[in-house]
């Protein structure tokens, strides 16, 4: 193994001495789903997240990109504590989540906001906006009646739904998609989280409101100094938005790098393929379907041996890529790629 290659696993492990600037860290995280035929016979495991380690620093915006089905949402949900990791750890502000008792877990959940993909589905259709925003406060026993109301109004102002009085009594179906997503964001923020996890927050919105919502998220992040983990499969929105990009492939990190470095010089053929498939920046073509890298996405039930990308890789090194899994090579400070091509 090359000296330059730094195993992210090791890095995360050494980081276990509490570093206050790290908000959340994943250590060798695995989230597998047991697959059973007829609900009876174990067929195998869907390895949605299969060995992922990283750290997010306070105030950082990280984008997680990758094809559909590569495990982005599963990773997000594992970070949120909605899925119990099969193995590995999620460390939030220095505390390991698996070791939390019920109360602490609830605390943890209050410290992490969640913005989902489908804004309409994310709002209970039978609750009005006030009730939707009040629920997290009630569940976490925050404030009394009056204080809750002020918080609710402040949250609505913050996401640009003002005056709040116009929205408090509205039911989700009376709001536009963009307004719905603003309510979802307000709900995610109302408990004053330090980490916000947004799973494709704009992919179901009209192109016209996407930019608005992205800008809103960016502004909020800046004003609140929030850490943001942003899941998308759309690289084109990332560059204005994130500081680091995590490229996921088949449940693992293929490449992690600062945005400019990654866009300027990708070090993983999968990232290259993703970038090549981007539509030109001409706004007229924006939103056009992009071609993904040639070939089928791999099965997560039985991932390819060696490098998971090798069956689709144009540059594969015969005899190496299909047998040995590539370690994480640090090709530049903060730029890591799991690809044998980076071996000197």
């Amino acid at each position: 193994m090359n000296e330059q290659s730094v195993n992210l696993t090791a890095a995360a492990a050494t980081g276990s001495t509490v570093d206050p600037s790290v908000v959340v860290a994943a250590r060798e995280l695995h989230t597998w789903f047991e697959l059973r035929r007829w609900g009876l016979f174990r067929v195998g495991n869907v390895r949605a997240v299969d060995g992922v380690s990283f750290e997010l620093r306070r105030g950082e915006a990280a984008a997680f990109v990758g094809e559909s089905g590569c495990g982005k949402s599963s990773l997000a949900r594992t970070l949120l504590g909605l899925y119990r990791p099969t193995s590995g750890q999620v460390v939030f502000e220095g505390r390991e989540m698996g070791g939390l008792d019920r109360g602490q877990r609830r605390d943890y959940r209050a410290r992490v906001g969640y913005v989902q993909q489908d804004p309409y589905g994310a709002l209970a259709p039978f609750m009005d906006v006030r009730r939707i925003l009040r629920e997290p406060l009630i569940v976490n026993r925050v404030g009394d009646r009056g204080e809750r109301e002020t918080r609710i109004r402040a949250a609505l102002e913050e996401v640009g739904l003002s005056p709040p009085t116009d929205f408090l009594e509205k039911f989700p179906h009376m709001l536009s998609g963009g307004q719905q997503q603003r309510v979802v964001i307000a709900r995610a923020l109302i408990l004053q989280p330090s980490l916000l996890i947004a799973d494709e927050p704009v992919s179901m919105l009209d192109a016209s409101v996407r930019v608005e919502i992205l800008n809103l998220l960016r502004d909020i992040r800046r004003s609140r100094k929030l850490t943001l983990a942003f899941v998308t499969h759309d690289l084109s929105t990332v560059r204005h938005f994130a500081e680091r990009i995590f490229v996921m492939y088949a449940g693992r990190m293929a490449e992690v790098a600062p945005v400019e470095a990654l866009l300027a010089r990708p070090r993983h053929p999968y990232t290259e393929a993703l970038l090549a498939a981007l539509p030109d920046p001409d706004p007229e073509n924006a939103g056009r379907l992009r071609e993904l890298p040639a070939g089928e996405p791999p099965s997560l039930l039985d991932p390819p041996s060696g490098c998971r990308f090798h069956p689709r890789c144009p540059h594969r090194i015969a005899g190496l890529c299909e047998t040995r899994e590539p370690p994480d090579f640090e090709v530049a400070p903060g730029h890591v790629a799991a690809c044998w091509l980076n071996q000197e």
């Binding site: 877990r105 959940r109 589905g121 994310a122 976490n140």
Partner: peptide, 26 residues
């Protein structure tokens, strides 16, 4: 499996709250 229920879990709603206040009213 509705997202709003997942959201409720994410902000810490307990089992009974989810059953009685989120699922049944639907």
């Amino acid at each position: 499996d509705a997202p709003y229920i997942e959201a409720a879990r994410a902000y810490g709603a307990g089992h009974w709250r989810i059953i009685l206040r989120y699922m049944i009213p639907r």
